[in-house]
């Protein structure tokens, strides 16, 4: 319980800026305007777009709000806010909760600089703390010193790693890691990959190949493909998720760098437009600052 409280306060802290920008502004808007006319909705539109909700999702939320206010003939100021909150909650909450089955392979993908390697270290730390046997695969054989970066993490966390030199075929590194994971009876194998922009077709095919290598071992492992997204990125994050989902069917999303930005809002269009669940959020630079995402808690922290 204590832990949960901790989590909530941390989440709340990291979302302070988002909350000020988002919920605070909605409060102001509602308090100053007595009628819910076009001007009101125009202001609301501005608030939502400033929170990185994007044009499409903003329109969805505005239309729904307009509709509900009209149908239920809502005038009470407090109620208007709860209508908006409810709409956001509906978008974010999953119908079914993904349960993770062991042994599993987590393939971590994303564009350059979103924080894949750091996220992997945090994930490894999380599972290790839960008493799982973890193995890392240094699948970023492209970027200079990427292998060293993840190796340093493996040493700090005292976790085994399968690696090869820079320039090696990443699929072969992953293959070796899968064999090692089988032999060592690993619970969780986490595979790093090189950052790639989603519009580079050949790099995306490379990813599909890695995906197939893991899928070939599906009788031994459950596979989870996780996309890492940077919370500071704008609506392009939706494009990224879309294209990565085509190359490797995504099972979930990790949203990093939520601390310090005022942009926790990007969570909403991603969920609304892509229906891919958000599994983890990075809320700080410490090892423990990776949290399982809980939509209800998130919405409560936001409003």
């Amino acid at each position: 319980m204590n832990n949960e409280n901790n989590f909530f306060s941390k989440l709340k802290n990291s979302l302070v800026k988002t909350k000020n920008n988002f919920s605070g502004k909605i409060d102001q808007l509602i308090n100053y305007s007595g009628v819910y006319d076009d001007e009101f909705f125009e202001e609301l539109e501005e608030i939502l777009i400033l929170a990185d909700l994007g044009v499409e999702t903003t329109n969805t939320i505005i239309n729904k709000t307009r509709e509900r206010i009209q149908i239920d003939n809502i005038k009470d100021k407090e109620k208007v806010k709860s209508v908006i909150k409810e709409i956001v909650r509906e978008i974010l909450i999953d119908d079914e909760v993904t349960s993770f089955k062991y042994p599993m392979v987590i393939l971590v993908v994303g564009v350059n600089g979103v924080g894949k390697t750091t996220t992997i270290a945090k994930l490894a730390n999380l599972y290790k703390k839960q008493g799982k046997k973890v193995l890392l695969a240094a699948g970023d054989t492209f970027r200079a010193a990427a292998v060293e970066q993840i190796t340093i993490w493996s040493q700090r966390l005292n976790i085994d790693i399968i690696r090869n030199d820079q320039g090696a075929d990443p699929a072969s590194v992953i293959y070796d890691a899968l064999q090692a994971a089988k032999a060592r009876k690993t619970d969780v194998l986490i595979c790093d990959t090189a950052g790639r922009l989603h519009n580079k077709d050949n790099l995306m095919s490379e990813l599909s190949k890695i995906n197939r290598v893991i899928a070939n071992e599906s009788e031994f492992f459950t596979q989870y493909n996780l996309l890492v997204l940077d919370a500071t990125s704008g609506t392009n994050a939706v494009n990224q998720a879309n294209v990565f989902n085509q190359a490797t069917k995504l099972d979930g999303i990790v949203l990093t760098k939520l601390d310090g930005t005022s942009k926790g809002g990007i969570v909403i269009p991603i969920k609304s437009q892509l229906k891919i669940p958000i599994h983890f959020i990075g809320v700080g630079e410490q090892m423990d600052d990776l949290q399982e995402f809980d939509a209800s808690t998130f919405v409560d922290a936001l409003f």
Binding site: A51, D230, S233, G234, T235, N236, K263
Partner: peptide
């Protein structure tokens, strides 16, 4: 990063 959103 060219992909940065509103927070840029």
């Amino acid at each position: 990063d060219a992909m940065t959103g509103q927070d840029a």
